[in-house]
Amino acid sequence: MTDNKKPNFADRFINSIEWLAAIFVGIVALNIFANVLLRKFFSTSIPDSYDFGRMLLGILIFWGIAATSYRGGHITVDLVWTMVSKNKKRVIDVFATVVLLFVVTVQTVMLFDKVHGTFRDNVQTYDLNIPTWPFYAVAWAGDVCAVILIAIRTWRLVFKPEALHDEHYDDKKVE
């Protein structure tokens, strides 16, 4: 995307997902920070802080998957990719992205089963008896966003590779 173009819906959606993932990082950090301060200075803790921390970490992981799924900047192994021609690089990228789309779609279906199971079984936190299914549902929503972003990436890889946001897509090098 060049600077003179107005971001389209897909680009705004991608940016929103990245901001949400960043907000979840902040929430997890705040939960840990507050709990450490309370334990150190007041010999107490937030009720259900362990359950909240565990579930917030799950949310963070799935929204992090969503945030990193679209961009090509996450850790990759590019040994074969760097040795082939530009057309073959594109074929490898499309294949890898389609496989990722399949895997994350299956993961999303299975996570929905977990959300439904915790709702059906009325699983609650230990101290405050808060239902846990909303936390699982937020994590599942992150996984759904990952599927959408991977689908957008796949479409752009096939039809509009110039619209990708990969850093130096044409000149990735082995580091």
Rank of each mutant, 00 (worst) to 15 (best):
S85F: 02
N122I: 05
L57M: 15
H116W: 11
I46A: 07
N31T: 12
L57N: 13
N87P: 01
F135L: 10
V77K: 08
L30H: 04
T82L: 05
A137I: 06
R90S: 13
F119W: 09
N31Y: 04
Q107S: 07
M83A: 04
W133E: 01
T125C: 04
N122Y: 00
P131C: 05
S85L: 02
V36N: 04
S49M: 14
H74A: 03
S49G: 04
P134N: 08
N122A: 13
M83D: 02
F95G: 04
F119C: 05
A34Y: 10
L101Q: 02
F95L: 15
V91R: 10
I59T: 11
D78M: 06
M83N: 10
F135E: 04
G73N: 13
L79P: 00
D121Y: 06
G72V: 07
T125A: 09
P47D: 08
P47C: 14
V28A: 12
G58I: 13
F102D: 08
V115Q: 03
I32H: 00
T82I: 14
F95Y: 14
L37Q: 06
F102A: 15
T97V: 11
F135T: 03
V103G: 12
R90Q: 15
V98N: 05
F95Q: 06
H74E: 15
L30A: 15
L57C: 08
N122T: 12
T118K: 12
D113K: 13
N87K: 14
T108S: 08
I65L: 13
V106G: 08
T125V: 06
N87L: 07
R54I: 14
V104K: 00
T118V: 11
R54L: 15
L37A: 11
T68P: 02
S43K: 06
G64H: 03
I61V: 13
V84K: 07
I65T: 07
T82M: 06
V84C: 02
T68Y: 11
F95N: 07
F52S: 01
L100F: 04
I65G: 03
A67H: 06
L56G: 04
R90W: 15
A34P: 04
T76G: 07
L111I: 09
L101E: 03
R71F: 08
K86V: 13
T44C: 10
A137G: 06
G72M: 10
G58Y: 09
I130G: 01
H74V: 06
P47T: 10
W81L: 05
L30T: 15
L30M: 09
V91Y: 12
W81V: 12
N122Q: 09
Y50T: 12
R120Q: 11
W133D: 09
R71I: 05
M55D: 11
R71S: 12
F119G: 01
R39G: 09
W81R: 07
I65N: 01
L128T: 03
F42G: 03
S49P: 01
G53E: 13
K86C: 06
L60W: 00
V109M: 11
I130Q: 02
A137C: 04
F112L: 12
R71M: 03
F62M: 13
Y136R: 01
L60R: 04
K86A: 13
H116N: 10
K88L: 10
A66T: 02
I75K: 00
S45E: 12
D127A: 15
T97N: 12
T44A: 09
T108F: 05
V109N: 00
W133Y: 13
I92K: 13
A137S: 02
K114P: 01
